[in-house]
Design a protein around this nucleic acid. Sequence first.
DNA 1: AAGATTGTTGCTTA
DNA 2: TTAAGCAACAATCT
Length: 285
Amino acid sequence: MPELPEVETIKNDLRRKIIGKKITEVEARSGKTIRGEKKKFIGILRGNRFGGIERIGKLLIFALGDGKNFLLVHLKMTGQLVFISGKEIIAGGHSFSARFPLPNKYSRVIFGFEKGEKLFFNDMRRFGYMEIVGKNGLEMVKNKYGIEPLSKEFKPEKLKEIFKNRRAPVKAALMNQKLIAGIGNIYADEILFAARVMPDRKAASLKDGEVKDIFSASRNILKKAVKRRGTTVSDYVDTSGGQGGFSKFLKVYGRRGEKCYRCARTVKSMKIAGRSANFCDKCQK
DNA sequence: AAGATTGTTGCTTA
DNA sequence: TTAAGCAACAATCT
């Protein structure tokens, strides 16, 4: 699922691919994907250009050339943004990932640029959305997000403050977007394994050393995952349809019933905050 | 064939 | 008032 490293990868790639380009066509194949009025959405985008691209948490923010409007894109679980140039020959076969050729039955919104370039928003389960907001709307959205874990403002003391008086399991706190922006199920499991902390520990019960370990693990794992262009578990692909390279570094996520790489005991799982949490109860305390 | 899966929202409960 | 738990959402896989 796209979390911080995956969305960051998409942002960086799309900056090189679409900034400054004029949107000549907008095709909306799914009404549900577009929030607000579809006509207005298309009206604002057609003829406009993509300016800068930012990310906050798992949300992409495209500034438009008119200086007034912003396109928000959330991929939720199965969203993909795939860019193809006009000449590109789309090879078959990648059914697992990008489901080439494009468009396919999951292509919900398609942007056309000059010279035949296209950007596809594919989303099998239609949880993802696109929405146009103005400056005020953007501020309101931004205010809902907690600290960016890769920013320099994120420090061990800050994490300690976040965990203070919090009765929720530490895993729920890590995944709470209002507290920390961008961590989802995959990276929460990996961070807690690296920090050797059990996911069901109450956040407030953690000792300073454990908080520091979680802080360090967050930085290390998220940085490495960005460097490896994210994790592909099922649907995530980058803007070229390629898979994330962090998948082979996963230590516990999706490994329930398999042997822990550190101690060879069986990786366990339990439900926390309505989600599966994978862990090793020998390595994590 | 029912249950698991996943991120976010909004409702309910504490 | 604030925080935490949970159902709902869609589609697919096991």
